[in-house]
Design a protein around this nucleic acid. Structure first.
Lengths: 183, 183, 183, 183
DNA sequence: CTTTAATCGAGACGGTACGTCGAGTCTTAAG
DNA sequence: CTTAAGACTCGACGTACCGTCTCGATTAAAG
């Protein structure tokens, strides 16, 4: 239950923070994004940032989650192979080239040594859920949770591995990857 | 070429630092490992640490690279499927349960937002080279660089993805994963 | 013009620093007084010290300027020679035996090789102004700036020289010095 | 007693250090002269510097003492006032404008907060001895140690004070100062 | 002509202060 | 009760100089 008395939360401040974090990520990179920097860029006091978010990971997640979902949504056709290919192309673009993607990679990275970030990400399985949607439609026989989980890892894993370990994304061929999924 | 004049580097200090960083990683986690902390734990001056390494990532890599190689080396048999299964099991153990593995995950994470760390890792493709060794033996027909690269991503990717995104490693079945590689 | 918004400066911190620097000067000597040491002794963060003062010289000057003025102020009588004698005795006590005096000597010393300290001291001619006050009253005929400046140097100089070059202050006879001033 | 066996002290190294300290004093100022810097500038190992001198003050004193003596030596005439005037002019030049003088001022400054430097200087009363020589010749009646000491302070003091406290040396009139000495 | 002993250079070592930065928290006055 | 402003404590950053040490290489007198 939210209190009704007192000055209400400033929507202006909230948006300013989210935009600031987005801008800063592009301009200076994740590592150089600081709570102090966000506050100054947003023209907002530091206390205000801390009042609503406790880490930069939280802000980043809120700032890029919707973008991520959009970028990974594929409009289905009747051709399963084409759908998977399209999805993989979107995945490559997302991870290797988009702002939301680099935020996501930074968060995954942070999660490797920060349990709080790990838990934060566990609640929003962005990659997994988008992949499951595509797989369920393309191969309806993967209907048990275990099969679906394995299929998800097989679909996303190779691309995810290649990009996270710094391989050249131009070498990735979405169609070839899609074919090996069916093989 | 190493200089021969002057006081020689202290092997004692070098080892103390590498052990300290290993211990600290386990005790406090990557994020809380600091250059200062390493120096104090090793009983070594801060200057000495900076003289030989410029970041904690460098120290960590030097401290765990040999362990990683050992843990991912598989003695070959005549059964390709068994070899791949053994390798995948080793990979799961490495990434999810070993010290060297958690150091590696931390480094991969850091590499997502620190180009220097990324370059550092690019020079030591620990996972890739171990996988290529196994694949070349099990499926000699993957003989072009492109085919080998794709095969590597297909072999490691699913496991890598599952563990890096926080999925439960006990759900991973190395034999099932190996079979899908051949499929 | 001082800002009115934001948390006001902590008077407690300011005083703690000034006292700390005074104490440390006596205990360990000027050379061993460090910004870090001051902060720790004052129970104040290093950042706070740097926020308000940029060198230990600045702190020392602020800490001892008022004391110095007091110690060098002479209540006038009708006897010029007695007034000068009293003043010279005060000057000897100040330079050779008081805390504020040893702070002043340290600052004069630092000023010989630090232009910033020199400029700092130029703005507060502690010795000169106290001497001018006494001279103007005792010998009203020194009324041009040049004459006053020369008289100041003649009054203070011998004592200043003797103490700064490490001569025994007990050998200094204020009355004899005062007499030579009139001669 | 000096040992006769072993490699003899390198005269080349000794001179290189003394020259280096002279040069550095001019170029970077006393405060920025460091033992490390001296060694590097002299092309000599740090150990070698420490072997023969324990502080930079010692080196500086050795490097400038002879210069100081020369600069303050006055060839006597038959005119006492002229001799004192000449001496005071030399004193002003020395303290305000010469290299040896700025070294001396730096040492006097250091002596205010470093007892070792104070003792070092006590053994070489550069200013005092040069002044005594002039006074003894100009006013033979100052023949007791006390009278001589007072006269020395009266002769040097005003100039010393004016320059050490940062007054403009061009305002100092050696002849006027000499006259007040006799008055 | 070979010890022997002190020198020299180079450069690594453990310390400690430097001045800066970001993290979070706290204290004002204004809305 | 929120907000902007800004001071506060804390602790790591990377650098610099301190004075000491350990090397191998010189250099000269003593055996």
């Amino acid at each position: 239950m939210e209190s009704k008395v007192g000055r209400p939360r400033s929507e202006r401040a909230r948006e300013a923070v989210l935009h600031a974090v987005d801008d800063l990520l592009v301009e200076v990179g994740y590592a150089a994004v600081t709570m102090k920097g966000i506050a100054e860029r947003a023209g907002v006091s530091r206390q205000t940032v801390y009042r609503w978010w406790s880490t930069k990971a939280e802000i980043l997640l809120e700032a890029s989650a919707t973008d991520a979902e959009e970028e990974l949504t594929v409009t289905p056709t009747d051709d399963p192979l084409a759908d998977l290919t399209t999805y993989l192309q979107a995945l490559i673009n997302f991870l290797a080239h988009s702002h939301a993607g680099s935020a996501y990679r930074a968060l995954i990275g942070e999660a490797q040594h920060d349990p709080e970030v790990a838990q934060l990400l566990a609640g929003k399985d962005i990659l997994g859920s988008s992949a499951r949607a595509v797989i369920t439609r393309a191969v309806p026989t993967y209907d048990t949770p275990e099969a679906l989980e394995l299929a998800t890892a097989r679909l996303i894993g190779p691309t995810f591995f290649a990009i996270m370990t710094g391989r050249d994304p131009r070498q990735l061929d979405p169609q070839a990857l899609a074919r090996t999924f069916f093989a």
